[in-house]
Design a binder for these strands. Structure first.
Lengths: 335, 335
DNA sequence: CTGAAAGCGCTTACAG
DNA sequence: CTGAAAGCGCTTACAG
C-alpha cells in the first residue's frame, strides 16, 4: 500500500514533480543527469504511474476498445489478433469485449468504452448501435465497423463481400448436383447471415428447380447447429435437403456432429458447407468446405483505418472490402 | 465534442454537482423528485460519466484484469467466459489480455493493469511473474493464479491436477499396448507441460519397457504440433514412438494433420492423445482422446476466489484443485 | 533545463 | 435531503 507518487519520486530525486512528469513523458526536455536521477528514484520506490490521473489531466485515453460477436469463434480471435498486433505497434492497448451476439452486452461494453473515453472503438455489431456510435463520435471517440457497411456515410469499415461468399457456396453445391439447399444460421437479423443467404438465393434463382430454405439457428455456435440439424432430420427422409450451408463453421461443425451420429453420409446423402474457414473446419471428421476470409488482415486493416480516423477525425470515411475464397473439401465433393 | 459534465447536468436540473453525484452513485440518499430531475437532465444532455475522474477521486477501479496464455485456445476462452460471467454478476468489467506465451507481453499487461489500479488480476502465468505480482499486491490489487500453485503461500489459486492428468493418459496408452511414448508440447518451462510430462513418466516407470521421450514444441499451437511431428516422422520407421501424447489439443490437432497427410494410421501405427478436451478434439478427423478440465467452472471459481481476496485482502489464501477426467476416443482405441 | 501554480472532472466528508 | 469546499494524482502551460 506504500503507493509511491510523483511527489515522492520528485523528493527522492531532488527535483520538482513537473520535472518527474517531463522525464516520464518528454525525456528529451530533461537533462541526462536529471533523467538518470529520476529513473533511479522511480526504480527505488517502485513507482507506477496512476493512469486515471494521467488520463484525466491529459484529457485522452490512448487505448482502443474492441467488441466481437463471439470471443470463442476462432474467426474473431484471428481478427482481434490482427488488430492487436497493429495497435501494439502504435502503442495502443486493446481492450477486448465479447458481445456474445447479445445487444445488452454490446451496449454495456459501448458504455464502458464511452466512460473510459477510449481513443477508438472497433466493433462487429449485433444490434442497431448506430445511435450509440454517433454518441461516441460526438465524444471524440473514432469508430471503425467490422463486417458491415451500414452507417457507411459516417464510419469507416472493413468487410468481406458476403453476398459473393453465399453465391460461391451455392454455385459449388449446385454444380455438385444439389438442388434443395438449406441455409442454417442466425439470428436472421444478423447482416452476415442475411447477405450470405441472399447470395445463395440469387445463385439458386438461376437454376431451374434449385430452392433455398432458411432455418434460423438463433445463434452461431455448435450447439445451435446441432439443435437445428437435429430437428431437420426428424422430417421424413424425402424432405431432407440435399445440401446444408451453415453460415459459419461452428454451426457447420455442430451440424456435422449430428449428421455423423445419425449415420447420415456426408456428402453422399447430404452435402455440408460452412463459412470462415477456421482451422478446425479443415481438421473435422469430414473436412468441411468453407469460405475463407482474410481474418488477421481484416483486423490489421480495421486498426489501420482507426488510426487514420483518430489522426484526422474530419477525414473522409473509407471502406475496405475483401473478397471471399471458396475452399472445397470432402464434405461437398464425393469424388 | 459537446461533452456534458456533472456541472452541466447540475445546472440543468437546478441542483448542485454533489447531488448529481449522489443521484448517480447513492440514489437512496436523494429524494425521488430530485432523482427524476437529475435523470431527465442526464438523458437530455447525453451525459456520460468520466471514468478516469471517478476512479481518481474514488481511489479505486472496480475492473478486473485477466491474462491468458492463448486467447485463440478454446480452453482459455472457456475459462475466461466463466470468469467473465461471475464478474458480471459482481458488476466488475473484465479486461482480457493475451500473453500468447510471451513473457514480454505478459509484463506489458501486468504493467497496464497496475497503472490502471484494477481491483484484481487473474493470471495464467508464463514467466516468473511472482515479483511483479507481489508489487501488484503491495499496490492493493488482489491476485488469483490460474493453473498453478507456485507462490502458494501468497496467492490463491485454481488449478487441475496435471500430474494425475499425465498419469491417466499414460496409463491408458500403456493399457492399449503402447510402450514408447513421445510427449510433445512446450516450452518445457511451462508448469503445465512439466507436470503432465512428470505424471506420464511416473506411470511409465511402473511398467517394464515403457519409455517416455519429451519433444519440446516451443509453443502450444497447431503449427508447433505440425512441425514437431513432421520432424518425428523423418526418423527411420522403427524409431517412431507407438504413441504421441500432446500436452494440449491444439498441438494434438496439428499432429493429427501431419500424420493424416503422411498416411500414418491413427491409432493403428501411432496412437494420439491430447489435453483440455476442447470441442474440436472430439470433432476431429479422427476423434482425439483427451483430458477434460472443467474450464468454465475454473474461471468462475477463480473469479470467486478473487472476490473473496478483494473483500478481505488479509484473509488466508485458498487453493482449489480440480480433478482431470480422461475422455477415450478413436485416436487411441482401435475400432 | 527546471519549478510554482493551476486545473483535468469527479466524489467525499462535512455542515446545514 | 442538499450544497460549498476540498482534493484525488497527475500534466500542462508559463515564467524564469
Amino acid at each position: 500500500m506504500a503507493m509511491a507518487q510523483v511527489r515522492d519520486v520528485a523528493a527522492l530525486a531532488g527535483v520538482s514533480p513537473a520535472t518527474v512528469s517531463n522525464a516520464l513523458n518528454h525525456p528529451h526536455r530533461v537533462s541526462a543527469r536529471t533523467l538518470a536521477k529520476v529513473q533511479a528514484a522511480i526504480e527505488e520506490l517502485g513507482y507506477v504511474r496512476n493512469d486515471a490521473a494521467r488520463q484525466l489531466r491529459a484529457g485522452s485515453n490512448p487505448a482502443v476498445g474492441m467488441i466481437v460477436l463471439d470471443a470463442a469463434n476462432p474467426y474473431f480471435t484471428d481478427v482481434a489478433h490482427g488488430a492487436e498486433q497493429h495497435l501494439a505497434e502504435l502503442g495502443r492497448p486493446l481492450l477486448l469485449g465479447n458481445s456474445a451476439q447479445r445487444e445488452e452486452q454490446e451496449l454495456t461494453y459501448l458504455r464502458l468504452f464511452d466512460e473510459q473515453r477510449v481513443a477508438g472503438v472497433l466493433i462487429a455489431p449485433v444490434g442497431d448501435v448506430l445511435p450509440k456510435l454517433r454518441t461516441l463520435k460526438d465524444h471524440g471517440t473514432s469508430v471503425v465497423i467490422i463486417d458491415r457497411k451500414a452507417g457507411a456515410d459516417e464510419f469507416s469499415s472493413v468487410s468481406v463481400n458476403d453476398e459473393q461468399g453465399g453465391w460461391l457456396v451455392a454455385d459449388h453445391l449446385i454444380d455438385q448436383g444439389a438442388r434443395r439447399i438449406a441455409v442454417i444460421g442466425g439470428p436472421g437479423s444478423l447482416r452476415q447471415v442475411r447477405h450470405r443467404l441472399h447470395g445463395t438465393q440469387q445463385r439458386a434463382d438461376r437454376t431451374d428447380g434449385a430452392t433455398v430454405e432458411f432455418l434460423d439457428t438463433g445463434a452461431m455456435d455448435t450447439a445451435s447447429g446441432r439443435e437445428t440439424v437435429q430437428r431437420l432430420l426428424e422430417r421424413p427422409r424425402d424432405e431432407w435437403p440435399e445440401a446444408i450451408f451453415a453460415t459459419n463453421d461452428l454451426v457447420a461443425l455442430g451440424a456435422l456432429q449430428v449428421l455423423a451420429r445419425a449415420g447420415v453420409e456426408v456428402p453422399g446423402e447430404i452435402m455440408l458447407a460452412g463459412y470462415d474457414d477456421i482451422e478446425f473446419a479443415a481438421s473435422a471428421t469430414i473436412p468441411i468446405t468453407s469460405v475463407r476470409q482474410p481474418s488477421e488482415e481484416m483486423g490489421r486493416q480495421a486498426a489501420e483505418l482507426l488510426r487514420q480516423a483518430i489522426e484526422d477525425p474530419a477525414a473522409a470515411v473509407q471502406h475496405t472490402v475483401f473478397q471471399p475464397e471458396l475452399m472445397v473439401r470432402e464434405s461437398t465433393s464425393a469424388h
